[in-house]
Computed example of a mutant assay.
Amino acid sequence: MPSDSPLIRFGVIADPQYAPLPPNPALNRHFEKSLGKLDEAIGVFNAHDLAFVVTLGDLVDRGYENFDAVLTRYERLTHESILLPGNHDFLVAPEQLPEVHRRLSMPAPYHHFSRNGLRFVVIDGSEESLFAALEGDPRRARAEARLAALEAAGSLNAQTWNGGIGEAQFAWLSGVLVDAAAAGEKVVVLGHYPLYPDNAHNLWDWQALVDLFDRSGNVLAYLCGHNHIGNLGHHGSTWYVNFTGMVDTETENTFAIAEIFPDRLEITGFGREESRALPFDI
């Protein structure tokens, strides 16, 4: 019989991508409208009992100065705000790249925390990319080599606007999953880039992470943005939920409240975000 008491309840926003720019009709992106959409979402969140609100990247479309307008909106949020960057958040002047994670008040580019018997893990999918590391940085060189290999292999996600994680981060993530299992904690992983199913927006090393989650057996869900039309997949014992992008459309908003129960993940969608009930099998 389904449990009626959630272990945790939290808000989800993906891809506000604000900038004081004219709309992009080809992509149906309305950058300036995102401030009003954030105000609406935060008003809804403030009316609910939530543990936190997570924003899954791309707070801005470009420009370090545009973080000010977005983050001012978050000051009205009465809950803890957990932010992580997407690819667009790194479209800033080169000297400002090292400041992006600090501007989002992150304790580290990748980190984890425990709440109500659950382990939440924030990964950094832009660690090795063509936009988050400066010329001359070894991470940039590795990204260029990785993208060239993916292009040679004809991979769907061989795109300059995707990224990947480094070996040290992958080892760290593996260790966190082992530690969570030892502590009896189920895991929810948060990132910007999708992992599953195969898609042009996926993290470069998506298959390695899907395989890791399968082996670990304790990852309930992976939550992400980046692919603005959204997506849903299930592999092994993990749900892969790609939330729709707030910046898309002139008037329709999109955000969600997620509730994790012992036996399921329930997503209450607002606007364009679909409501779902996703049963766990672990």
Score class of each variant (00 low, 15 high):
S174D: 14
G175F: 15
V176T: 15
V178F: 02
D179N: 14
D179Y: 11
A183G: 04
G184Q: 03
E185I: 00
E185P: 06
K186V: 01
V187M: 08
V189R: 00
V189M: 01
V189N: 01
L190A: 09
G191C: 09
H192F: 07
Y193S: 10
L195W: 06
L195Y: 08
Y196M: 04
D198N: 09
N199E: 13
H201M: 09
N202L: 07
L203V: 04
A208C: 09
L209N: 06
L212R: 08
D214K: 10
R215I: 15
S216R: 11
A221R: 01
L223Q: 08
C224E: 02
H226K: 05
N227C: 03
H228T: 13
I229V: 14
H234I: 04
H235V: 11
H235P: 00
H235M: 08
G236R: 06
S237E: 13
S237F: 06
Y240H: 05
Y240M: 01
F243E: 04
F243R: 00
F243Y: 03
G245R: 02
G245A: 14
V247I: 12
D248E: 15
T249S: 15
E250T: 05
E250Y: 08
E250L: 12
E250M: 09
T251I: 08
T251D: 12
T251M: 05
E252M: 10
N253T: 15
N253C: 13
N253P: 06
A256Q: 06
A256F: 01
I257S: 01
A258H: 08
A258D: 04
E259M: 11
E259P: 03
E259D: 13
I260M: 08
